[in-house]
Nucleic acid binder design. Structure first.
Lengths: 121, 121
DNA sequence: CTCGTACTACGAGGTTTATCGTACAAGGGT
DNA sequence: ACCCTTGTACGATAAACCTCGTAGTACGAG
């Protein structure tokens, strides 16, 4: 993962990730959508702009920060972009099965509601 | 499950339970504690007073209501008490593995933090 | 150096939340 | 009937949250 800027971002260490914070981060539809999207992306991650939330840029920034501060995603600057990746390894180690259960639950709910779209997010 | 009062309480139907609402309900430490406690209780459920949250009665009522309205627990009057039970069957059917993952995650977190108490909640 | 892209910082608005205290209702036991 | 136990309703307060717009920074490309 090449970093082309030394601007640093605070991430909680794995052992400081709190279940309550993770659940809270996942309880927002926007953020759940981001997580679902990132779950289908490789370790390099994707820039914030890769997923079209239907909100303003500031709101988008806000949601990505909530996810980062909860320990759900990692963010790294690369040029003018900021790459976002799921902290799948950390989450799976801390809370085995949780992330998968949430992702499957969301997928199931979308199926039930006929929201299935060609894109998986 | 004997009901000794006809006072009715609104519960979402199973198909109306929303993942976001469930995750939100579970993202509060008090409520997570309630759920962990109820997971070790039979289908009859337990009265609100069975678990000692360290908050006022009104706050306690509030948390139980949030759990009920999210579809996480069911509540039934029985005499002066109100019996609370996890809607495990509904949740497991809608979101397989989610509840267990959350409960295990919480237990693991407590173990890591040395919060293990004799009581399992 | 200037421009465009990608994102941030700050502050504001409106909503929801967690908490409490007080006052009240419903039901069981004496 | 009268209490005691259990939980509710209502109103208040302070904090957190989601949303936005505007103004600004960092970086790469030309």
């Amino acid at each position: 993962m090449r970093v082309t800027s030394d601007r640093a971002l605070d991430h909680p260490r794995r052992e400081d990730i709190r279940l309550e914070a993770v659940l809270h981060a996942l309880s927002d539809p926007m953020r759940l959508r981001v997580v679902a999207f990132l779950s289908g992306v490789d370790d390099e991650g994707a820039p914030c702009s890769a997923i079209d939330l239907v909100v303003s840029k500031s709101t988008s920034t806000h949601h990505f920060r909530v996810l980062r501060e909860a320990g759900v995603i990692s963010q790294v600057y690369r040029g003018t972009a900021k790459m976002n990746a799921l902290r799948r390894r950390d989450l799976d180690e801390l809370f085995p099965g949780l992330l998968d259960a949430v992702l499957h639950a969301r997928a199931a709910q979308r199926r039930r509601e006929g929201d299935a779209e060609p894109v998986p997010f």
